[in-house]
Amino acid sequence: MSEPLLAFLYFFILLTAFVAVFLDDLLSSFISLSVTGVLMATVFALLRAPDVALTQAIINSGLITSLLLVAYSHTRRTPLPSGPCTACPSWLRWPLAALICFLLAVLLFRGMYSLAGERALETASTHFLAETLRETGALNVVAAILLDYRAFDTLGETTVIFAAVAGISLLLSGGKHVRSRQGLSFIVKRGMALLTPFLLLYAASILFLGHLTPGGGFQGGSVFATVAILICVVYGTGFDASRVSSKSKETLEVGGALLFVFIGLLGAAWGGGFLANLKGPFFPGTPGSLFSGGNMLFLNLAVGLKVGAGLSSIFYVMIKILEQEGEQ
């Protein structure tokens, strides 16, 4: 890994972050933020974290940007009231905040400086790197940690996604879809029709090969959600909503969670404990083949269903037009 390249990337990360913060035009600052996300994904790949780089590239620069644009287009922004804010004047606000943040940066750097230096792996990490193949049959150590050693935490995380979807649906309930049947032009529609099978294949390969290569349920599910967003943009909002109802998305999401718990209970019924993998009824298989790593393939499927259905239903709830109940 070359240091000048990393310095270059860090410089542009900070530059785009400053642009995103201080630019007045909101749309430009969203795009700048998305560029920050892509550069951050590049840095993660350079720092030998391919799983994290994939997730960052898909979620932070694809999904979050599209959600930002949806939220932007569904809000009405009146210009700020002229004259200074009386409650807290800006001449006090800016220097004070700058001072606090400068002190915080110095303090943080001082604290992190003591972390630098020669670093040896802890016992847990050494164990994961050395014993993953024997204990789980998977090749991707990060996936093995997520779905075998710490699978219970992953179940907790899917619960967080469920809570977020439920909260967003509750907040934005009562709206209705705008039936824009037009969508984009004919050429774009044909192009998207040709592209869709390959995009789905890409998503499925990321999802099902998660225990062998970088990827897994989170990334594959996010790509599925991105495909749903693309279809919505290209064919108009009515297209997907009339074919895949929000009810069936809910069913998929709940089905993913239930599949996860069912696999966990299978391990418990076998006497290996909740979410037991090779100690339960699963086989390690030939290392490197699709059916290896015990229950990891099915857990990836469950997480993928959960994340894909969850994120796409967040998007579909957000593009509904809110009934203006506060209007008097």
Partner: peptide, 11 residues
């Protein structure tokens, strides 16, 4: 970090 990214997107 992987889980943190997904949870970050949700919040």
């Amino acid at each position: 970090t992987l889980t943190a990214i997904v949870i970050g997107a949700c919040d």
